[in-house]
């Protein structure tokens, strides 16, 4: 879907939403507002199956909000979201989520294993404590991210990178088909960064789709097959090789300056 569709086109389509049932995530005409101030405008996007998708944009572009709106964590002012053709409510079991590391209090009384076990809570009924096989799954996931030795360590005694890996392990035990990760690379050491990249590629090999909010522009082409450039609206989306261009980045990050540059170019052309 092209980001440069006319408003009229959108209006006509409004009542007969067309979602791609095979897409792990399809967003249709979504607008999100905080306190009536829109932060995301008219988002249309369909993620391809089995790809690593980077969500890139400046601070305040609405990257986290995009993820949260997809997961019903913030209300949508309009539009709809489908996971494999169904609403998020029906598809929770196939979705995994890695929130921003700073969103929780790491001084909370819990061990790494406790936190990872939380990934299984979704499939345990209310009022039933996690069982042995849940703990085993959690331990296995910790081993997968190279944190097996730290299972019983208090989470405040882990480094930032280790905490991030704990969050990833928690998403792994969700055993999802689509993953949403909010800045998993933020503030991590080189070893953790490498471990996360390996993990992402493993997930892709197993046919999972991963959407990752990412802030390091340098590594985007290396890490992601597909990129979604976001600045309150979708500036461009598609395969990294074709979409991740200097021009699109300018549009995403440039803000007012881009207008000036474009105007200057127009003047230069007319002259």
């Amino acid at each position: 879907m092209s980001p440069s569709r006319s408003p009229d086109h959108r209006r006509f389509e409004h009542d007969q939403v067309h979602h791609d049932d095979d897409s792990p995530l399809s967003i249709h005409d979504m607008t999100v507002a905080y306190h009536r101030k829109p932060v995301l405008w008219d988002i249309d996007y369909a993620a391809p199956q089995g790809k690593l998708v980077g969500i890139v944009g400046p601070n305040g572009a609405g990257k986290s909000t995009l993820i949260k709106a997809c997961l019903d964590l913030v209300p949508r002012a309009s539009g709809s979201v489908r996971i494999y053709g169904k609403s998020y409510k029906e598809q929770r079991r196939v979705v995994g989520y890695v929130p921003q590391r700073e969103s929780v209090d790491w001084d909370f009384p819990a061990s790494a294993l406790d936190v990872v076990t939380m990934g299984r809570y979704g499939r345990i009924p209310w009022c039933i404590p996690p069982r042995k096989n849940d703990k085993e799954a959690a331990l296995h996931a910790l081993n997968q991210v190279g944190m097996g030795d730290y299972a019983f360590r208090q989470i405040s005694k882990l480094s930032g990178g280790q905490q991030q890996r704990v969050f990833l392990a928690r998403a792994l035990v969700q055993d999802a088909r689509v993953y949403f990760m909010d800045e998993p690379f933020a503030g991590v050491d080189a070893a953790t960064e490498a471990a996360i990249v390996t993990l992402l590629r493993e997930l892709r090999e197993r046919g999972r789709t991963v959407l990752v909010v990412h802030h390091d522009l340098q590594t985007v082409p290396e890490y992601f097959d597909e990129v979604l450039l976001l600045n309150m609206r979708i500036v461009a989306a598609g395969p990294t090789s074709s979409v991740y261009t200097e021009e699109n980045l300018q549009k995403t990050y440039g803000g007012r300056l881009t207008l000036l540059t474009e105007a200057a170019e127009a003047i230069a052309r007319s002259g």
Partner: peptide, 22 residues
């Protein structure tokens, strides 16, 4: 005691709890 698991996850990470449908 019955709600231990639910209380724990909401206290630690309410967004994650909500994303799992709690």
């Amino acid at each position: 005691i019955l709600m231990f698991k639910e209380f724990r996850i909401v206290c630690f990470d309410q967004d994650f709890a909500a994303s799992m449908g709690r």
